[in-house]
Amino acid sequence: MVAPPRLNRLAVAEAADRYLTSVQVESVRGVLSPATARSYERDVREFAELVGSGRVLDDVTGEDVDDALVRYQASPDGRFSDPSRKGAPGRSVATVNRFRQSISRFFAHAARQCWVQADPMQWAAPPARSRDRLRVERTALSASAAGALLQASAVAPAAGPSRAGPVRSPRSDQALALRDRLVVALLLVLGPRVSELARADVADFTREPEETRWRIVGKGGSIRTVALSAPLAAALEEYLRELRPRLADRRPDDPDAQRALLLTWRGRRVDTQTVRALLARAVERMPAPYRRPATPHALRHTTATLLVAEGWDVKVVAELLGHRSIATTGVYLDRIEGELAAAIRSHPLSAGLTAPEATVAGPPPGG
């Protein structure tokens, strides 16, 4: 008879350290993307603080998990330095559900390693739903709004007053219009994840007279290659020729900066927050009728929605976005205003429902 495995009663902090070591191994092997690994680490570290890092992990109950989730949801969202930019205090339902998934993965690993007798997540309250089957609001921009955003990204903001005089010297973002236009164009036309864009290197682009291609390193180390349209390739060439060399010269001894496609004013590789900030500035410069909050992920939705609306097969769109399943792509497709009415008007049976021509009544048969 085989003896059951022996329970290893680790403290929460030690269990978290061991688990996150395995997460880093998966990241190095390409099973997890670096961004996903960082997200797991951030969530598990915070969970350890919420339940008590010195407690024995096997003593954590479903009620403890529920209490940690409630306190996590009520805590300030660190992504928003300006609270007025967030619609409500605390964390969103989607953020809490992501945190819950990270903790579920942690406890599943703990159960396999015999750090807990049973997974407490099975007794925790079920996750909240962020929305019903229908979306609360559209995420994708219309074609007109997307065009307005692209135009706004290429316009440098006007110089404002300074303390010393009526006009101040141009801000750093005024000299980065070529970069900002390229970023928004790549997000709108090709729909990459913001992390994929931030870690793109110049060497990832194959630039030939006939065609320019981008080798995108996606989730889990997956690779996909997409072709740039002629206008998009021209915007890339202009940025590489006119602006990037000046930015790269500011950090000549930084090997990462010398490789990176997109650089900040100080010559460092841009991060995801930089991309979100430049997008927010472009939104502020949009005409008022089109102006609405937009994130890099919203532009990814826009790419998918507009391509499908133009008649492209959803399988092609899934390949462009780097989705392994077209079911995932379906989540990205938002309804375009007026689309339902247009579909009803173009229904193949609509023509057969027209009223028949009136006929002149004649005398009855035999009359």
Rank of each mutant, 00 (worst) to 15 (best):
G267M: 00
S104I: 07
V60P: 10
L263W: 00
E237I: 05
R29N: 12
Q122G: 14
A94T: 15
R259C: 10
L306A: 05
E137D: 11
P192S: 12
R199I: 09
T295A: 13
L243D: 12
V93G: 01
H297T: 10
V194Q: 08
K219E: 07
A230C: 04
P287S: 14
P365R: 14
M121R: 02
L20S: 02
D173P: 01
L261Q: 00
L306D: 06
L178H: 05
D204H: 00
F106H: 03
A118G: 05
S33P: 04
V25G: 06
A111P: 03
R268C: 03
P127M: 02
V308N: 04
V155G: 05
D59H: 06
L32E: 10
A288Y: 06
A156H: 12
M1A: 13
P120Q: 04
S142H: 10
G322E: 07
T21P: 00
S22A: 14
W115R: 03
W123A: 15
V56P: 00
E210V: 13
T302V: 09
T328F: 01
V202L: 12
R55S: 08
T36R: 12
V314K: 08
A146N: 10
E357C: 07
L190N: 10
A277C: 07
T36C: 06
T329P: 12
D43T: 06
D253E: 15
D313E: 12
S142A: 15
A355N: 11
Y19C: 13
L307I: 04
R193L: 07
A124F: 00
H297D: 11
V202C: 11
W265I: 04
E211Y: 09
G30L: 04
T295F: 03
A37W: 08
G30D: 05
P365I: 12
P287Y: 05
A198I: 00
T139G: 09
E284P: 01
A294M: 07
V65T: 02
A128S: 08
Y290V: 00
S81D: 13
L299S: 11
D254Y: 02
R207W: 06
F99A: 04
S22I: 05
G367R: 11
Y19P: 05
R100T: 12
G90D: 13
F107D: 06
A48P: 04
G362P: 08
A341P: 03
R100G: 04
V167C: 05
P231T: 08
Q174D: 11
R259P: 03
G62F: 03
G62C: 01
A260C: 05
V155C: 08
D249H: 11
T139Q: 13
R6S: 13
S153I: 04
V2Q: 11
P255D: 08
D59Q: 13
